[in-house]
Design a protein around this nucleic acid. Structure first.
Length: 587
DNA sequence: CGCGGAAGGT
DNA sequence: ACCTTCCGCG
């Protein structure tokens, strides 16, 4: 078992559960599906079947119910869920297995290739979708899954790996170029056979898929990997910004993502997501160390980020992934030892383990907008029946139960189909992927960091902390509640700030000289003072001015839905998303 | 059942 | 962006 203590660092517990981590997107349907598929208790509800990646929803209503529970959408039903699934067709995450009811198939080629690019996909053949990044020739021509290790060293409940630290281990290991020292010598290849695979005719991607996604793989669990790679090191930077150890010949044995084999559901980053869909800077893979480096960094970081929380850190190309937060105080809190450090998913899904307590009747087939408009009675009727059996659920999901009645007719009752026929040009997903390559785009942070306009340091280190923390609360908030080793030393912050400020005199750069760690930051003081003065002026100037969004208003979140709890963490995470370490200090 | 457009929500 | 909701169509 990995406790915050034994590894020397810890993450906030939300970091271990990306699905529900506030900064992350809410769990996506296909994550959820994978999650269900992975759990035996749901094998009567949904299960792998047929081809690789193919699964059958045996109990559509139940799946819908579970999904609805997860998303706090008590009105969920298979009709809606399947619509959501159909949206995956275009994204090529899923497709329908024709002729088989309730049967869909994951596009594992894409998933595997995109997320596990070092897996040997066999001959650059036909079945490799173009959306998938090409496999560098020097890398992973013959991918071997990492060997597993005895399954009794660490606690067995490690099925949910959340520690990005593994990456570092892997990276280090990769740097050393040795993977062969598995303790028990069991090769993963053999494991694949153990799982009962049709070795020969199976395509590599499928093999990969199996090992990655099949439920309860006996060996490739978090534990084995964890054991294999030891305790996460203090610096979980998967691929540091420093030159790649082996140059382009990074040992193929483990893609960073592969270290997360155990939790397909939660670490398969959403494929079409920007930095993942096609991590290469262009559609073409140029195989030089620089590109490789960038690629690896982006990829690893993406995965890593996803682990932590996809939104936790912006995807910057040459950024060093922030180190984990040592939640001395955070985790020392009441709930710390008990279950935070154990396994997120286990306490994360109140609805699933206790599906019974969550019994609520699925909404009957949609009444239709019109129907809901006119006869209030029928809607009310079934809603009440729902809520009656869903007291607990209502409690957790807040307004959920009300939905049935309050969803307004939206006025568009009748089909506005009078218009002329439109031809819609569909975007091919490959193109999607390509446009999502923008690894260098940091514009996303603009909103959160409008004091330092990103353009100002576009060329420079993209890791600039966003000083909005300092701005909104003045100097009072220097108190680091979360001492994070990764937080750039305040000196660095001021240094950067100053640097920026010098380059751009008009900038409101808060030098943050009040920082505890640099009480007498001698060297910079004059400048700092200057900036301080400047800052004060600006503050005064802005005092009367309209509120800028630098003022971070803590939103009143009343939604008790498990998906959205962790309010303070939410705040943290959201600000984090703004690209600011300093925000952590904010907590 | 399954599809996909359309609109809306967050 | 990723659904959720509704709906008409086959």
């Amino acid at each position: 078992m990995k406790t915050p203590g034994d590894s020397g660092f810890a993450f906030p517990e939300w970091a271990y559960k990306p699905e529900s981590s506030p900064g992350s997107r809410q769990i996506q349907l296909w994550h959820f599906i994978l999650e269900l598929l992975r759990k035996e208790e749901y094998h009567d509800v949904i299960a792998w079947q047929g081809d690789y990646g193919e699964f059958v929803i045996k109990d559509p209503d139940e799946v819908a119910r579970l999904w609805g529970a997860r998303k706090c959408k008590p009105q969920m039903n298979y009709d809606k869920l399947s619509r959501a699934l159909r949206y995956y067709y275009n994204k090529r995450i899923l497709h329908k297995t024709k002729g088989k009811r309730f049967t869909y198939k994951f596009n594992f080629n894409k998933l595997v290739l995109v997320n596990y690019p070092f897996i040997d996909m066999g001959s650059a053949g036909s079945n490799v979708p173009q959306s998938a990044p090409p496999v560098p020739s020097g890398v992973g021509t013959h991918f071997r899954f990492p060997p597993s290790t005895p399954s009794d060293v660490l606690s067995p409940n490690g099925e949910e790996l959340r520690s990005p630290g593994v990456f570092a281990s892997v990276a280090r290991r990769a740097a050393r170029g040795s993977v062969s020292d598995c303790s028990d010598g069991t090769s993963v290849a053999s494991e694949l056979e153990e799982v009962g695979m049709t070795g020969g005719d199976e395509r590599p991607a499928e093999r990969a898929f199996r090992s990655l996604f099949l439920p309860h793989h006996p060996r490739l669990t978090h534990d084995s990997l964890f054991r294999m790679y030891g305790v996460p090191p203090p610096a979980p930077v998967p691929f540091p910004a420093s030159p790649l150890p082996g140059g382009p010949l990074l040992p193929p044995q483990l893609s960073p993502a592969l270290s997360m084999t155990s939790t397909p559901t939660s670490h398969l980053p959403y494929t079409p997501s920007p930095s993942l869909a096609s991590p290469m800077p262009g559609s073409r893979f140029s195989f030089n160390p620089e590109d490789m480096k960038r690629y690896l960094q982006a990829h690893a970081q993406s995965v890593y980020n996803y682990h932590l929380s996809p939104r936790a850190f912006p995807h910057y190309p040459s950024i060093v992934v922030p180190q984990p937060q040592r939640l001395d105080k955070g985790l020392a809190g009441p709930a710390a030892g008990s279950h935070f450090s154990t396994h997120p998913l286990h306490h994360q899904q109140p609805e699933e383990p206790h599906a019974s307590t969550f019994k609520f009747k699925l909404q009957p087939p949609p009444l239709g907008r019109k129907h809901r408009d006119a006869p209030q009675s029928s809607a009310t009727g079934h809603v009440s029946s729902v809520s009656a059996s869903t007291v607990l659920f209502v409690g957790e999901c807040g307004s959920a139960a009300v939905q049935g009645t309050n969803s307004a007719p939206s006025g568009l009752t009748n089909s506005s189909s009078g218009g002329p026929p439109k031809i819609k040009v569909e975007l091919v997903s490959d193109i999607e992927s390509e446009e999502e390559v923008e690894v260098t785009d940091i514009s996303e942070d603009d909103d959160n960091c409008d004091v330092f306009a990103p353009s100002h340091y576009n060329g420079g280190p993209s890791i600039l902390p966003c000083p909005d923390t300092l701005i909104d609360e003045g100097d009072d908030l220097e108190e680091d509640v979360f001492k994070t080793p990764a937080a750039p030393p305040s000196g660095a912050i001021s240094g950067i700030a100053i640097g920026v400020g010098m380059a751009l005199p008009g900038l409101k750069a808060e030098p943050r000289e009040g920082s505890p760690s640099s009480p007498g930051g001698s060297q910079c003081i004059p400048l700092k003072l200057r900036f301080k003065r400047r800052w004060s002026e600006d503050q005064r100037m802005e005092a009367g001015a309209k509120r800028r969004k630098t003022k971070r208003v803590v939103p009143k979140r009343t939604n008790p839905c498990p998906e959205r709890e962790n309010h303070n963490l939410t705040r943290c995470c959201h600000t984090m998303r703004g690209g600011a370490w300093s925000t952590w200090l904010h907590l």
